Amino acid sequence: MNQFPTSEDDSEVPTPGCFWENSPPEDSQLERFLRQHAPAPPVAASHLEADLIQRIITASPTPQQRWRWYSVWVVSPLMAASLLIAWAGDRWLRPTPASTTEVVRLEAFLETSWDGVVYGGSDF
């Protein structure tokens, strides 16, 4: 079942706008040769497509495929999130250095409160 004409006097006229319209004569000889000697495509078995579709539908993933899905879509984002939390937590939980005026005020408060507790001169 060859879909191309096989006669030597190929009288088929190409449609306007085709790429072979302005081809040199040796190309037409090549085209004629290829059309004449083109092999027929193999006959397809009608049940192969249905068998393939049925196998795809009924195929279940193996445990290795399930683990691969789990590791790619669950473990990887969890690892990235934990690294981000560790990095951000280190920055957020690091105490900011106190300024010298805050240190002086804190020392004064501790001295007065200690003196008030030990000597009883304050209402603390």
Rank of each mutant, 00 (worst) to 15 (best):
R66P: 00
I56A: 13
V72L: 12
M79G: 14
P42G: 09
W73T: 10
W69K: 04
R68D: 09
Q36E: 08
I53D: 05
A86L: 12
G89R: 01
F33V: 09
R66T: 10
L34Y: 01
Q64I: 07
Y70E: 13
A38R: 05
S82A: 14
Q36M: 13
A50D: 15
A80H: 03
P61D: 11
I85C: 06
A80E: 11
E49Y: 04
L34C: 08
Q65Y: 00
L48S: 08
I57V: 15
A80Y: 02
W67Q: 14
S46T: 08
P77K: 00
R68T: 06
V75L: 14
W69Y: 12
Q36I: 13
I85P: 00
H47I: 11
P63H: 00
R35I: 03
V75T: 07
W67L: 12
R55Y: 10
M79Q: 10
V75A: 14
I56S: 04
D51W: 01
V74C: 10
Q65T: 03
D51V: 05
L84P: 02
A81Q: 08
A45N: 14
F33D: 11
E49S: 10
L34Q: 06
H47K: 07
W69P: 01
T58S: 13
F33M: 13
H47V: 08
W67M: 10
L48D: 08
L48W: 01
S82V: 13
S71F: 03
A80V: 05
G89W: 01
L83K: 02
I53H: 03
L78E: 05
S82N: 11
L83N: 07
A59T: 10
A40Q: 06
L84C: 14
A44L: 11
A44Q: 14
I53L: 09
S71R: 06
A81G: 06
H47G: 10
H37D: 11
W67A: 15
A88C: 09
I85E: 09
W87Q: 07
